[in-house]
């Protein structure tokens, strides 16, 4: 029931974007439909197994002092679809992102990208393997021009080796190829008129576009976007949405953190909900947003009841029952108890 919701979007051929010319060949085999079809009829329990996962994480935990920021038992990200990671503020989404991409080390747990373990693999190596991220607070390189920002994204550049750098004839041809690819992407993201401006002179929204375009220069298979819509005006939001969708058309997998529910509903094929460091639900957008666990996590269990109508004694009994249940379970952490 959830999968065919997105069928019309996929069949649309209105997106006349220039395809990435550096797409690895195996991408053609796993087009968006196959990835999406695989999601049909899956259960919506946290950690459900996917038929064709590109990224798998198991037992990931990260604590800051007494706070268990991330405690993810199991998560699989389906290849070729757009997966949203949502959750209230402080749910641990960005920390989980950092753990997945190698920018932070988990206390425990393992993760696999394309079946390859990422244990003790550095963040830069993770990016070279094809899993590229952007940042919540946009990180453009202010004192480099827009074009230089883009060129930096290309991998395997001979001119980036120290011994070859001072001999321009060794890397000039490759630089031309990289520049061509950078200009193509800049045109697609409508930044081509800005290529000689310092990146620091761009507006907030243009920086978001530049960061996304620069990430594509790496030639990723999995694009991880940390709040791509934060602080972006509605018009630009529409164009960013189009760009994210076009990534899926080209066979890339997208995982993004977002607070904007309209965007999540609009473009995601699968939604993962985090609260207090744990994954509490996952599933197709409509199903997840109607899920009682999700509503409770966002709004509290009594959000739709007028507080004056509650019978104090009933509430007291409920609270006691909850406390009793927590003391019964060994998993209750001290912070959770403190919060209550």
């Amino acid at each position: 029931m959830p999968a065919d919701r997105d069928e019309p979007t996929l069949d649309k051929t209105t997106l006349d974007k220039a395809p990435l010319d550096k797409a690895p060949s195996h991408r053609a085999a796993t087009d968006g439909k196959a990835g999406l079809a695989g999601l049909a009829g899956l259960s919506t329990d946290p950690g459900v197994a996917k038929p064709d996962p590109i990224l798998v994480a198991t037992g990931m935990t990260r604590t800051f002092g007494g706070l268990k920021a991330v405690d993810v038992a199991h998560l699989e990200i389906q290849r070729g679809v757009i997966t949203a990671l949502i959750g209230p503020n402080g749910a641990g989404k960005t920390t989980f992102f950092n753990l997945l991409t190698g920018f932070d080390r988990p206390d425990a747990g393992e993760r696999w990208f394309n079946g390859r373990s990422l244990k003790r693999v550095s963040a830069s190596r993770v990016a070279r393997l094809g899993m590229v991220r952007t940042f919540q607070l946009t990180k453009v390189l202010s004192k480099l021009t827009v074009l230089e920002n883009m060129r930096l994204g290309a991998t395997g550049q001979l001119g980036e080796k120290m011994w070859a750098g001072w001999l321009p004839f060794l890397w000039r041809d490759q630089e031309k190829e990289v520049t061509g690819r950078a200009r193509e992407l800049l045109t697609r993201f409508k930044l081509d008129t800005k290529e000689d401006d310092f990146a620091g002179a761009l507006s907030g929204g243009q920086r978001k576009l530049l960061e996304m375009a620069r990430a594509l220069m790496v030639g990723p298979e999995l694009v991880m976007l940390d709040e791509p819509m934060a602080g972006v005006n509605p018009a630009l939001k529409q164009s960013l949405l189009g760009h994210v969708k076009s990534l899926r058309e080209e066979g890339m997998t997208v995982l993004f953190v977002e607070h904007d529910m309209d965007m999540v509903r609009d473009i995601s094929d699968w939604v993962v909900v985090m609260a207090q460091g744990q994954i509490i639900a996952e599933g197709p957008p409509d199903a997840v947003m109607a899920d009682q666990r999700v509503i409770d996590a966002y709004l509290g269990a009594h959000h739709d009841v007028d507080i004056t109508e509650l019978d104090p004694e009933v509430v007291a009994l409920e609270v006691e029952a909850e406390i009793g249940a927590e003391h019964g379970s060994t998993g209750a952490s001290t912070t959770e108890e403190l919060e209550r």
Partner: peptide
């Protein structure tokens, strides 16, 4: 050269450079 470009980028923001491999 591209090598110098990487150095200048590290000066600006090394996490961004790391995220690009």
């Amino acid at each position: 050269s591209p090598w110098g470009r990487v150095l200048k980028s590290i000066r600006e923001d090394e996490d961004a450079v790391r995220s690009l491999g």
